[in-house]
């Protein structure tokens, strides 16, 4: 079973967490300013890599903290974690 290292609680089974998707891009500062295609890029288009992937997890059945991890989608090896939105590119 995939184990997720919560930065607050330590490593737990992934069934304690809610997966919340791609964290590789920030939310646009001013969505009102975007064209339809730029908004579509943000909302729907994904790199979908076979490899390193930044993703949100929510420790829904634990401390309820949010954080981002980097996981390789081919091996599921996880790199050091950051809290909240810290360390995001």
């Amino acid at each position: 079973m995939l184990r997720i290292p919560c930065p607050f609680c330590g490593e737990r089974d992934y069934t304690e967490f809610a997966f919340w998707g791609d964290a590789s891009f920030p939310r646009p500062a001013d969505p009102q300013e975007l064209s339809d295609s730029e908004w579509s890029e943000h909302l729907f288009h994904r790199d979908n890599p076979a490899g390193q992937y930044l993703e949100y997890w929510h420790h829904a059945l634990g401390c309820r903290g949010w954080f981002i991890i980097q996981r390789d989608t081919r091996t599921h090896l996880i790199s050091p974690v950051c809290r909240g939105g810290e360390g995001r590119s």
């Binding site: 089974d13 992934y14 997966f19 979908n48 996981r71 989608t73 599921h76």
Partner: peptide, 13 residues
């Protein structure tokens, strides 16, 4: 399985 996966090997859960 509930998280992105590029392989065809899944989670026993």
């Amino acid at each position: 399985d509930g998280y992105n996966n590029a392989t065809s090997v899944g989670d026993p859960r």
